[in-house]
Simulated assay, not measured.
Amino acid sequence: MPTVLNILGCRVVIYPNDHRPAHIHVIGNGCEAVFRLNCPHGPPDLRENHGFTRSALSKILAQLAKNLTVLCTQWKAIHEHY
């Protein structure tokens, strides 16, 4: 599972054998959340959360939005299609 970004002490991961639509897993601090990227224009949104606080999710979403182009490019490099 390639880590494509590190934000707020968490790994942002794209699984090579995962399904569409384009999404990422944020893993860290004993928590995991999945965000749809809504490539290529976003905005990313939360699909599921396992343990992150609302405050942490807001901060993660802000960082994902800032890095959307990079994340969509990484998804496309791994999976070819959004």
Rank of each mutant, 00 (worst) to 15 (best):
P2H: 11
T3S: 12
T3I: 15
L5I: 02
I7Q: 03
I7D: 10
I7L: 14
L8G: 02
L8M: 09
L8H: 07
C10S: 13
R11W: 02
R11F: 05
I14L: 02
I14M: 04
N17S: 09
N17P: 00
N17W: 00
D18G: 04
D18Q: 08
H19R: 09
H19F: 08
P21Y: 04
P21C: 06
I24G: 08
I24P: 06
V26L: 10
G28W: 00
G28A: 10
C31A: 15
C31F: 03
A33K: 01
V34A: 15
N38A: 12
N38E: 12
P40K: 00
G42S: 09
G42F: 00
P43A: 11
P43H: 05
P44F: 11
D45Q: 09
L46H: 05
R47F: 08
E48S: 14
N49Q: 08
N49G: 01
H50F: 06
H50V: 08
G51K: 07
G51N: 07
T53L: 07
R54W: 03
A56N: 05
L57Y: 06
S58D: 11
S58G: 15
I60R: 06
L61V: 00
Q63A: 11
Q63N: 14
Q63E: 15
L64M: 04
L64W: 10
L64F: 08
A65N: 09
A65C: 02
A65I: 02
K66W: 01
L68Y: 09
L68T: 07
L68K: 10
V70G: 02
V70Q: 10
C72H: 11
T73R: 13
Q74L: 06
W75H: 10
W75L: 06
K76P: 10
A77G: 03
A77C: 03
I78G: 06
E80G: 05
H81P: 01
Y82W: 13
